[in-house]
Amino acid sequence: MAKYLKTYPEKCSACGTCMDVCSETFFKEKNPLKSAIKIEPKDGRVLMTVCDQTCRLCVDECPVQALTVNSAGVVLLNKNKCIGCLACVSVCPINAMMWFEGGQTPFKCIACGKCAEACPEQALEIVEEG
């Protein structure tokens, strides 16, 4: 089972709605630094960075087992267990484990789908496979 946020960069207009929705949902403020999805226009294209829930290197690396995979196949961080070492941030091959300076724990996409609902271009979609 794998549930994840699928991205369609070719449809994305880089409006940033998804980042606003995400940071508002989890941090109660509109702040792209606090969004679990990052949108960056680059060389005439759009780079969409978000966890695809598949490689799970962060789960293996976490020294306190604060990262686990739920029954839907989504990697979740238990903030109560996290000791803020940021090892997970460093092992993520696609830079999808997010962190902002001074934040005590990292954060990541949990495939909640709020951004996909709000995306005006249908560039995001929650997909469940397997």
């Binding site: 803020g84 940021l86 941030v89 460093s90 092992v91 724990t105």
Partner: peptide
């Protein structure tokens, strides 16, 4: 009650940035 700020550092952001830089170097 271990956390990333158990040392109560004067400047947590620098502790984190310095650590993250080395984490990435190691990986």
């Amino acid at each position: 009650n271990l956390s990333g700020v158990s040392n109560n550092p004067a400047d947590i952001a620098t502790v984190q940035k310095t650590g993250l830089k080395l984490h990435k170097e190691i990986i």
